[in-house]
Design a protein around this nucleic acid. Structure first.
Lengths: 348, 348
DNA sequence: CTGAAAGCGCTTACAG
DNA sequence: CTGAAAGCGCTTACAG
């Protein structure tokens, strides 16, 4: 009804209008049961008529829950990757699902930030300094300097990927090396002995770690671990790398590609030369993207536990919030195998 | 270095340690230049040694910028649609691009909220009441009650779709009726006279408005305006509707489908019966989705100005923020034609 | 350039 | 169940 007057109405005025003391009015507004029904009614009516609205700053000051690290019961998540890419990525929604669950269970508010420019970032830093969130989780590509590009003004932070400066920061990350081992051992278990790897660009940490996993697993099994071709992490890259591998060694009976997209490219290259998958060559990818289930034959892959990662990040943040003087928590989550037709022959 | 002590250090203590008054210490911390270099140094040193951290609540109380409607220079955007769908939707990133631009230009902080459950929504309402943002923009499907599900506690709101209760609220929306006219007139200009429409479910406002546009344009051109089939807004729906239309009237030389997905379905149905597009039948969709450019022939479509919509929403919000007692701003943006091969014969 | 002091709007023992 | 009063941590005229 009508324009709310801009000048703020104080508790004092409400109390006066209701014919009670400020203390009683305060009790009504904060839900203290020790108030007569009569007084309660008078205060509520006066408050609504005057358009009273609580001054949070004053309340938190008075209630002594005021420190900047104090409770506004909300956690920020800062997305330092190019927004458009990230929002479209299933990784993001899975991560957010996990975070959302865990936050909901704790009645914490989720606040999302997606700064684009350096100016956005510094504006965000100011906002964070304003104490509008209790802590933040930072999601960034691990291979850029984004981590160091944001200063969180002393509020607790948990990273979604291991920051370059291992140092004292908390992070939750996927163990890509373990994933590489998993994929390779799966191929070995299927009886494959001539296993090749299509690796991503070597400066990308994820794919580099997957390569390490491949090397470790082949080495331990006493197999050749040098059947490796690097390529761009897309289909074309995968296709070309597969062709190079076939030229190098004709006996290849399995391929582990560092991403599903590359694996799809490998599938193409194999089809071109008439190799059957999985009968002649088993193929496994990584990421368990929607792509994987859509190919023919369906592509085996390695699935990162993003929901769990989201949950784990949330737990880490909550922990940081409760006991302050605690060691940073550094977690590396193991991926899981998602076996499909491309590695498991029906004739086995 | 070392653990920051939890108990908050106050300005009083810093002042004492620095050998100055609280007033002087305050001046140093708030960047007031009227302080001697000496005093400044002493205060800064004391503050950092003691691990002093400003109590924002106290500052804002004292500074009198405390009302919940006060300035924190940030705007919230509330996403009331199922998150997973929405984040993947190009509409979202386009909207966000527009909003981001306009907000950056005004040095405003963007804060994103994506409540899932009713509990999330009421938690968000509390957060909003906490004055952490100055205003919000609400993005929701227009055909559910979402709009009324959120109470914004008196802070200014702009909707991204027209709320059911036209009332006094500000909104920016796409003019779907105008889009329907645009698509239909385009077909007419191409010389088509037997134009059919594949409409979406009639309870969905967008597609309903597009139907109105179709009716208006055909009527005005003196053409039949009753060649309409309703269907689900996906490919299958479009395919079946197209088949029904062909059964009803064989002379159809153009089809306007209410969504690109339906248009793709129509393309299939036409191919099955051997009608060439665009030679025999021209086809136009709506949404200008990535799909449109990917079909063969490439699909003509109608493009909603989502970037502009984002900018316009931002301007509306900023306006609401500056003069308060202003009439709600209600904007309907016109879509644009995105003509491609499916309506324009090379032989024209 | 500096300090004593009032005051921001609320909460909360404390005494009744 | 209620009120008078102290106090949360800071800012800001005001007087010097």
């Amino acid at each position: 009804m009508g324009a709310v007057s801009r000048a703020s109405v104080t508790l004092e005025q409400v109390a006066r209008a209701a014919g009670v003391s400020r203390a009683t009015a305060s009790r009504v507004l904060s839900g203290n049961p020790a108030v007569s029904a009569e007084a309660r009614l008078a205060v509520e009516r006066a408050a609504s008529e005057l358009g009273y609205v609580l001054n949070r700053a004053a309340r938190s000051l008075a209630a002594g829950q005021s420190a900047p690290t104090g409770r506004c019961q909300s956690i920020g998540i800062v997305i330092l990757e190019p927004t458009s890419e990230f929002f479209g990525d299933p990784k993001f929604s899975r991560l957010l699902t996990g975070i959302g669950e865990e936050l909901s269970a704790r009645s914490l508010q989720l606040v999302l930030f997606a700064p684009h420019s350096p100016a956005d970032v510094s504006r965000l830093e100011n906002y964070l300094a304003g104490g509008h969130v209790d802590a933040v989780m930072v999601l960034a590509h691990r291979d850029d300097s984004a981590h160091s590009r944001i200063r969180t003004q002393g509020i607790p932070v948990v990273f979604g990927t291991q920051p370059p400066d291992n140092g004292g920061s908390s992070f939750v990350d996927v163990d890509n090396r373990a994933g590489g081992v998993l994929a390779t051992e799966h191929l070995i278990e299927q009886g494959r002995r001539h296993i090749a790897h299509i690796a991503g660009p070597s400066h990308v940490r994820e794919t580099h770690d997957r390569l390490q996993g491949f090397r470790q697993a082949t080495w331990q099994a006493g197999l050749r671990s040098d059947m490796v071709e690097h390529a761009e992490s897309d289909r074309d890259g995968g296709e070309m790398a597969m062709a190079r591998l076939l030229a190098r060694a004709d006996r290849i009976d399995a391929v582990f590609a560092a991403t599903d997209a590359m694996a799809v490219g490998a599938l193409w290259a194999l089809q071109v030369v008439g190799r059957r998958v999985p009968e002649d060559v088993a193929v496994i990818g990584f990421d368990d993207s929607p792509l994987a289930a859509a190919t023919r034959p369906a592509l085996s892959s390695v699935r990162e536990p993003f929901e769990e990662m989201g949950r784990e990040m949330t737990r880490a943040v909550v922990n940081l919030l409760s006991d302050r003087d605690q060691r940073p928590r550094q977690v590396r989550l193991s991926p899981e195998l998602a076996p499909r037709e491309s590695t498991v022959s029906a004739t086995a």
